[in-house]
């Protein structure tokens, strides 16, 4: 009779399919990207691909476009994530209260998150439409603005309007996660705090917020990763414009590689993004490490 597999080999066999696929769709492409970034591959001139060493990196790191895109990405991440947290925590606190019909609100609030980003982008593009959009009509009707604005027409404003669309879609996720976190806080904590005479504010800052810390941390990290990957919504709402005002880092990469066909420049950018994300992921793992101790 065949000897049964050892525990070690069994575990190894189980993870093999996952590892094979991850190697072929992530690790190999990244190495390939690294390789491409040392050459000058330009599909508009396919017959020469000279080796340029770190030339692509120097060119990109010394130019303003990369850094502008990076600054925009960081701005996008900071503003959208803080908005999502302020709104998300407030809404979660409300939904954590007991009132009739709460289940209905809970079901409805989740919907924006389920909507495809592409649909979300088209929808907000329509709402922001300068001539016929709902936003201009609403704001002029209540007297907040005198004349119709071109919301996606100037670089900085457009970036903020894309953030609005992103916040609308992603706040529900924060709400659900925070709500789930709130339910893990034992009720006795609030009761004993009530006996000790802690008021609502004190209770929020001394019980709710510290107890939510692990949840907030996880959501924060996941959202940071996602904002560094933001692409679809930019593509559909502004295509990086106007005047590159919404060109975030992944969109810049896409444009170099697929619109200008500068494959190695795209590869260089891609590799720089991977490095940034690697840095972020080290923070991620460290943060998770402290969380398990908790």
């Amino acid at each position: 009779m065949r000897r049964p597999l050892s525990e070690e080999n069994f575990a190894f066999i189980l993870i093999t399919p996952a590892v094979i696929i991850i190697f072929s769709i992530v690790l190999y492409p990244i190495l390939k990207t690294l390789y491409m970034s040392f050459f000058n591959i330009d599909l508009t001139n396919p017959f020469s691909r000279p080796f340029v060493g770190l030339g692509n990196y120097l060119e990109i790191l010394c130019g303003p476009t990369f850094w502008n895109a990076m600054v925009r990405t960081v701005y996008f991440a900071v503003v959208s994530i803080s908005m999502e947290f302020i709104l998300g925590i407030s809404i979660a606190l409300l939904l954590n209260e007991d009132f009739y019909g709460r289940w209905l609100l809970r079901s409805l609030i989740i919907i924006p998150w389920a909507i495809p980003t592409i649909v979300n982008g088209s929808l907000w593009r329509w709402i922001f439409n300068p001539q016929y959009g709902a936003l201009n009509a609403l704001l002029t009707q209540i007297g907040l603005i005198d004349s119709y604005q071109s919301w996606l027409g100037s670089p900085f404003l457009a970036l903020n309007m894309v953030i609005v669309a992103d916040v609308w879609k992603m706040t529900p996720l924060v709400v659900i996660m925070i709500l789930a976190g709130l339910q893990t806080i034992p009720h006795e904590l609030y009761e004993s705090a009530g006996v000790d005479g802690a008021n609502v504010l004190k209770r929020f800052f001394h019980i709710t917020l510290p107890m939510l810390k692990p949840t907030i941390l996880i959501v924060l990290i996941l959202r940071t990763m996602e904002t560094f990957k933001v692409f679809d919504i930019i593509y559909i709402m502004t295509s990086g414009g106007p005047a590159n005002g919404t060109q975030l880092i992944t969109y810049y990469t896409y444009r170099e590689a697929f619109s200008y066909l500068q494959l190695s420049k795209g590869a260089t950018l891609a590799f720089l993004i991977s490095l940034t994300i690697l840095g972020l992921s080290i923070i991620y793992v460290k943060a998770l490490g402290t969380k398990t101790e908790y």
Binding site: I25, V26, P29, T33, F271, L280
Partner: peptide, 16 residues
């Protein structure tokens, strides 16, 4: 490695 793969945008690995 698996965790790292979670964080790579598709635009980075797309061409290969």
């Amino acid at each position: 490695l698996v965790l790292g793969a979670l964080m790579i945008p598709i635009q980075v690995t797309f061409v290969p």
